[in-house]
Design a binder for these strands. Sequence first.
DNA 1: GATATTAAGTGGGAAAAAGTGGGATACCAT
DNA 2: ATGGTATCCCACTTTTTCCCACTTAATATC
Lengths: 143, 143
Amino acid sequence: MLLGRHDGKIDAKHRVSFPSVFRKTLGDSFIVTTGFEKSLIIVALDNWKTLLEGTIDKPLTDEDSRQTQRFLLGNATSVQLDKKGRFLLPAYLKTHAQLFDEIVFLGMARFIEAWDKKRWEEYNSELAKHIAPIANRLTEGKT
Amino acid sequence: MLLGRHDGKIDAKHRVSFPSVFRKTLGDSFIVTTGFEKSLIIVALDNWKTLLEGTIDKPLTDEDSRQTQRFLLGNATSVQLDKKGRFLLPAYLKTHAQLFDEIVFLGMARFIEAWDKKRWEEYNSELAKHIAPIANRLTEGKT
DNA sequence: GATATTAAGTGGGAAAAAGTGGGATACCAT
DNA sequence: ATGGTATCCCACTTTTTCCCACTTAATATC
């Protein structure tokens, strides 16, 4: 299961270093697409369809579903890691996630989210304030 | 049941020595994540997994579930003790807990809290001054 | 209670792995 | 051709991992 935070960098050639821990699970070829809250979603090729369940399997007459499809599928790209574990990030994805040179990868069980480091830290500290009930359950022990 | 205070150290290689008393309960593999008042929370793996149930299999479109996942998964790390009972502490957790080189582990019944030694001692002596009315509030209204 | 014995904890060397940066060549579109 | 981008490769730095030696603490033994 994918979990934890690992940092990477984006160099002048738009190459993104991908943490080796995650590489062990995902392999050296996967899908990158736009995510929610200005993140990027990174998912293994064979997990791609499963992940979309419940979001794109609605009838095409449903506009919300059409829009979600366009967002998730239309922006997706398949990337390949180089020998040193880096992939090339298309400009439109870099823009979407407001990425600069420091990137944070978050293991989210079945996929990975990527955030600009600064934005993640801001978002996360906000999150901590509102997620207290969840954190409470964490320390309550077995239910 | 986890209780008591035991101290540890963090060396230059980010290795944290974990008290053998707690190791006997938790084993040599567990979850470390962010906690309240800038502490760290250490919980057993299966404890943590129970908490995740019902959130990691929700569709991507569920915002609440996204937030919970980010908090629970993004900040957590699964650690493994080495032969000498130390684990590697990720930089972001060290930062969160404002840890330097001395660390205090507190048994909290079902989980463990970790504090920077100096911060803990300051916090604790403040606590001692004000704890009586606080503890009283906890029991007020009951019976 | 002093000393032997085992366990726990600390620090660091050395090798391997991961990550970083950049040069040189190939490729494509204008 | 030319400028921009991608690809491949290599050199170098940093981090991680594994192992061992040593110190300190805890426990046992007489």
